[in-house]
Design a protein around this nucleic acid. Structure first.
Lengths: 232, 232
DNA sequence: GCGGTTGAGAGAGCACTGCTCTCGGTTCCT
DNA sequence: AGGAACCGAGAGCAGTGCTCTCTCAACCGC
């Protein structure tokens, strides 16, 4: 990328796009997604609000850009953790989960943008899907390795309804390995729990209930790993 | 309540408060929490925006009222489900979880208000806590019954760090029964999974992944019950 | 019953938002 | 060199939360 023949205008444009996104991220950090104001972004950059519309057709378009960037950042963190093959599969799963939490804790507002209530009136366009898929695919990669290594006990099963099996068949085609239904459904369980737990932690639902968030998360990540690998 | 001597003014006030909340709920349904507009509420009621401020000092105060009402509605649904003692403890747990999901699916925007990203700048005042505690307490009541009946296998344990044990000790004092750490921590796991799964379903993260939401939820609620009751 | 106190609605107004449109001036491409 | 594309500025529209003042009706103690 960055083809050598890049006009001055194009360079300036690319830089300004980045500056706008950076300012948007700052806004996100300070006031949250639904308070993100294009005018404030423009003010921060010393330009007039209408000029920003040359770069992003609407507030939602800026939000989408930030959304994709955030998914990519989270996905990169998860992939990096998954690529570290030290230790057993439980350790690797816990490492991926911990990396996700670390990113989420470091970027709570961006996390809220990704996994919180959708911004009303805003519908994420389809091009966010690939980025959104990176974190779960990274995690499932670890499980696929474990299955391939024969380290997943598939004997402990819970009955799966027919309609759900159809969904799982489609899902299996889109993720690494050739995970059996029972394993897929365990992963779905563990995966949603991670984000339920993170939501509770970051959105304050455990306020005055739990203080040892790190311990709780690690404990539950281990439990999740056991559930995924051994079904218990 | 409703003391007999209620002046006409007080009656009118109480009625109008309800009407404003009803209009606010309608707004919530149609445009979501962060787009809820006091002016639109006023318009719908045929009054001028400033008049609404006689009843709610700010938009946030109206949001808080809706928040508490929603927690109460969800809590009532969970409690009703928990009070039905038919079947085994697994069936009762699944019933409570299903009741929670049914309410959430029927009131997605109110659910988002409760468990989605917090509205930025808005901090729920402390008086929302009792209402917010009703759903989990209802669910834990079922588990307490199961423990009392000796139907919980407490032998399968996962190590719990010291700091977390301290949190659990405080939590134990606030919830029904005298649940051991291992059981409490299983409940936390299952509970956060419910809301993680609901968030994924309602906020569109399973779009194009799962269609059989009912089946998935029921399956996972059963898995959760097994995890809580048998630790596996 | 009367008069002071309290509550309620209306309206104007402030500062802010997203977004549109037009108008000059710069840069680019042929 | 000239036409086309692009870009920033400014004005403007409709909407927002919220405040302040004004007026009038309801209340309550005497």
């Amino acid at each position: 990328m960055a083809n050598a023949p890049m006009t001055a205008r194009a360079r300036a444009r690319a830089e300004l796009v980045e500056e706008i996104k950076a300012a948007g991220r700052r806004q996100l950090r300070e006031v949250g997604a639904s308070e993100l104001s294009l005018r404030a972004v423009a003010r921060e950059l010393g330009m007039v609000s209408s000029a920003v519309y040359r770069y992003f057709a609407s507030r939602d378009e800026l939000l989408t850009a930030l959304l994709v960037d955030a998914y990519d950042a989270l996905g990169a963190a998860a992939e990096e953790a998954a690529a570290d093959r030290r230790g057993g599969f439980e350790a690797r799963w816990v490492r991926v989960a911990t990396a996700i939490r670390a990113w989420a804790v470091a970027h709570p507002h961006e996390y809220a943008l990704l996994y919180g209530s959708p911004v009303p009136g805003y519908h994420a366009p389809g091009d966010t899907v690939p980025a959104a898929a990176r974190p779960p695919i990274a995690a499932l990669g670890v499980v696929a390795d474990a299955v391939a290594a024969g380290e997943v006990d598939e004997s402990r099963t819970v009955p799966i309804p027919r309609a759900l099996r159809a969904d799982l068949a489609r899902l299996r085609a889109d993720v690494p390995g050739d995970l059996p239904d029972e394993v897929l459904v365990r992963c779905l369980y563990a995966w949603t729990q991670i984000f339920g737990g993170l939501g509770f932690e970051l959105f304050g639902h455990l306020h005055n209930v739990v203080e040892a968030y790190d311990d709780l998360f690690t404990h539950q990540a281990r439990r999740a790993a056991r559930l995924v690998l051994q079904g218990s």
